[in-house]
Amino acid sequence: MQVIQHPAETLRTALVSSRCDLTDRYRKYSREERRLLEEGLHPGDGSLFQPITVHSDSDWIPSHQEEPQDFQSFYSNPYSSMPIKGHSTIYIQIIGSFGEAEAETGQYVEWIRDYCQAFYYGLVVKLLPPVTVAATGCAFRVNSSSRNLQIHAGDLVP
């Protein structure tokens, strides 16, 4: 296993912005909101952010090379998901069966729930009961390389 841990200075550079509107917004955050953001500068020291563990070369990070993204470009991205006023709950639902990996999958779903709860600070994240692929009415295919079932996400998310 490989552990990916960025130096604090790299993280600080990514979070600091030269845009006045962003720095003004940061000053208006509550002490708890600033703590959440600043804890990212010291991964492994706090309770929210831990170094990323890469288990194999097929994990996302080694197999999908991406350009680094700083906070300013993330914040300015018109496609980033932001909570909608009046909506305060995120629902997560397992689709399909994971067979022998069912117990492991439950732990992963809990981790996803915890991550969403931290990322969308202030929103409630609830797990819904699992449903079958057929119950979704979605288009799907079997990936020719991995032989895994893939559901057409456009049928799930409006």
Score class of each variant (00 low, 15 high):
residue 5 Q to R: 10
residue 124 V to H: 12
residue 123 L to T: 10
residue 150 Q to C: 14
residue 75 Y to N: 01
residue 113 R to K: 15
residue 100 E to M: 12
residue 97 S to K: 06
residue 24 D to C: 11
residue 76 S to D: 15
residue 81 S to P: 03
residue 18 S to G: 15
residue 34 R to W: 08
residue 21 D to I: 12
residue 76 S to V: 00
residue 15 L to C: 07
residue 96 G to F: 02
residue 133 V to L: 06
residue 70 D to W: 10
residue 150 Q to K: 10
residue 126 K to H: 01
residue 133 V to A: 03
residue 134 A to T: 07
residue 36 L to R: 05
residue 57 D to T: 14
residue 129 P to F: 06
residue 80 S to P: 00
residue 139 A to F: 08
residue 85 K to E: 15
residue 142 V to G: 05
residue 32 E to T: 12
residue 58 S to N: 06
residue 59 D to Q: 05
residue 56 S to Q: 02
residue 143 N to A: 12
residue 105 T to I: 12
residue 111 W to F: 15
residue 123 L to H: 01
residue 70 D to N: 11
residue 27 R to A: 15
residue 17 S to H: 08
residue 75 Y to R: 04
residue 40 G to Q: 14
residue 101 A to C: 04
residue 21 D to S: 12
residue 107 Q to V: 15
residue 26 Y to E: 04
residue 70 D to Y: 02
residue 30 S to L: 07
residue 126 K to D: 12
residue 110 E to Q: 15
residue 34 R to K: 14
residue 150 Q to A: 14
residue 112 I to D: 05
residue 101 A to T: 08
residue 8 A to R: 03
residue 96 G to M: 01
residue 53 T to C: 11
residue 18 S to L: 12
residue 17 S to G: 04
residue 94 I to L: 11
residue 79 Y to P: 08
residue 130 P to Q: 07
residue 38 E to G: 08
residue 104 E to Y: 11
residue 29 Y to M: 15
residue 37 L to D: 09
residue 96 G to L: 02
residue 68 P to E: 07
residue 116 C to D: 09
residue 42 H to G: 01
residue 29 Y to C: 00
residue 121 Y to S: 13
residue 134 A to R: 11
residue 150 Q to L: 09
residue 23 T to E: 02
residue 65 Q to C: 11
residue 17 S to T: 05
residue 34 R to D: 00
residue 75 Y to V: 13
residue 44 G to W: 04
residue 16 V to P: 03
residue 79 Y to I: 05
residue 122 G to W: 04
residue 46 G to A: 04
